[in-house]
Design a protein around this nucleic acid. Structure first.
Lengths: 334, 334
DNA sequence: CTGAAAGCGCTTACAG
DNA sequence: CTGAAAGCGCTTACAG
């Protein structure tokens, strides 16, 4: 069986209190005693039982991260960022994703109850009243990613997509003699896509660009559908002096490939820009001009917020805004 | 403060022993008593303190997953598969990745010690003697992903890439009048790439295909380098009746784009196949024929193995082999 | 079927 | 500076 604080105490000829003290760097333990204890710890390869410790301290040094899904580059970047920061700060990361059949509340309950985690980072695609209820009951600090939950105290980190989008569209319009911009978006129910569309309307208005009924499309964020849409329209788009703003890189890649297949040059005949700056953005020719959304930074910031909150429970909720950023490559033609 | 087993006992008018019994479905608690306790639990919203429980039971119901990196689609698929299965079996998943500066042993020590996790799934890109030492000291069941560590008792799950690769290359050669196959691989130090190369040699020999010195290339798994290599060579490849076998989908995408840019038709002038069946494989035109490696299944299988091991500590080590699978799409021309 | 008591391995006032 | 003792919230023989 594993060795305990008792074994260390015996070996070092002190009481367990003293061992505990050197473990927790508390008070000033006598130099010599401390050394004796420390070498006993080393010799025995002792490390304290986390359960016993947690029982007393009521801290696990485990942070929970709940994501809507584990699929895709975004989520993995969030995990990556959170994991790194958590390590730096001496925490471990427990991960869960909602699955199709439940709405995630079941899971969150499981994670948040029990006092298993010291804090919780949550990203939710759709906030149901059941989820709100669950979150309200959470007894640990909460950080919500990219969203807000009324009536529940929490810090949050959000990404400002608007600024980056506007920068990208202005960049496009300043440099080229463009007469139209075609927006190839995600579903109308998707908040992110609609935010990008809002920025699109702002900038087109600013530049006096007309937006026709055929200039805004709502697809599903997939390469295939974007390819098909573009295959049917690139000719006309090019003829009418348009550029394409796709709401993610994958769709932008589909548009580029369709243009190429139609013997059109990108960006010469048809500039195309994307969104997200995923790996895909460097896997097209020409490479995509796009907007980078700092996902791993979001993960890291969430951990930071949680840890700050541990130190100061009462301070008012923080809302951290992370900036998106224009990444200029070749597909915009400037 | 949170409510404890004491509160429940008081409310239900029983001793904590009885509450504990209904919690653990032990013995037969009197029907009526059980109901009283259960409703007390519900009313109070009680859930047992994990630390106290862990202290007695010496089980946390947390499983550790250590990956070399959190970047990329593979790792996220492993996490996804492991997470789902862990949930099904009533476990939580704690995740860590090695970081650049250490070699992962530091981390594993941290995870495995402490008795924080009940078992550990580990994937290591390079097994150093320090890592071996750390693993040897692990006190919990171990599952190694895609590798083997001598002198350390562990179960493992590996992927048989050979069978899938051979199936793909045979498929290519049976259907086309190919005179050569160009291998565009990863680094020579990469085991996976070398395995794929071995299969390549087998099948070319089987079909009497000559392998010239310029037919095998070792790149870095990136789109860009593959694009550049192909841009310089596609003309000759096509002229000499070759097909391209890239060791991952990204490089295959680079080759396709380079061929297209050179006005070559894929697959008519130059068949191209990839490996991995990542998202990228559906983001090229033509879509990639490739070999699917079941990453999420690997994650799930690892969790299964761990849980079987809990039930039967003594049974000899299991090595689970997962099959890769040929996925025929359009880029091979059949 | 149920309760009183011991014990899991720690931390932390409280004395000295 | 150090030790004896209480207590964290559970589980589990041991009696009844």
């Amino acid at each position: 069986m594993p060795i305990s604080i008792q074994d260390v105490a015996k070996k070092a000829n002190v009481s367990i209190s003293t061992v505990s003290r050197v473990l927790n760097r508390r008070n000033i333990v006598n130099e010599e005693t401390r050394k004796r204890v420390e070498s006993a710890i080393n010799d025995l390869g002792y490390s304290p039982n986390v359960f016993a410790r947690g029982l007393m301290l009521r801290r696990s040094h485990i942070l929970g991260l709940v994501l809507p899904d584990l699929h895709g580059e975004f989520y993995s970047e969030i995990i990556r960022g959170a994991n790194l920061r958590a390590r730096e700060l001496g925490y471990k990361l427990m991960i869960s994703s909602a699955v199709a059949k439940d709405d995630g509340s079941e899971l969150m309950a499981a994670v948040a109850d029990h006092g298993m985690v010291d804090g919780l980072v949550v990203m939710i695609s759709e906030i149901t009243s059941r989820i709100r209820e669950t979150l309200r009951k959470a007894t640990v600090p909460l950080v919500i990613l990219d969203g807000d939950v009324d009536g529940v105290k929490h810090d949050s980190v959000v990404i400002d997509q608007r600024t980056g989008t506007i920068a990208m569209l202005r960049h496009l319009l300043r440099r080229r003699d463009l007469r139209r911009i075609v927006f190839v978006g995600g579903p109308v129910t998707n908040i992110d896509s609609m935010e990008r569309l809002n920025a699109y309307h702002e900038v087109t208005a600013e530049f006096g660009i007309e937006v026709g009924p055929d200039d805004v499309h709502h697809l599903d964020y997939q390469y295939d559908t974007a390819f098909d849409l573009a295959a049917a329209n690139v000719g006309e788009w090019a003829r009418r002096g348009a550029a394409v703003f796709a709401a993610n890189d994958e769709m932008a890649a589909g548009v580029i490939d369709a243009a190429l297949a139609a013997q059109l040059a990108v960006p010469a005949d048809l500039p195309v820009v994307g969104f997200d700056d995923t790996r895909v953005a460097s896997m097209t020719r020409p490479r995509l001009t796009t907007v980078r959304v700092p996902m791993s930074e979001m993960g890291a910031a969430a951990i930071d917020l949680l840890c700050q909150r541990f130190d100061n429970v009462e301070q008012p909720p923080t809302k951290l805004v992370l900036q998106s950023k224009l990444i200029v490559r070749d597909s915009c033609g400037s």
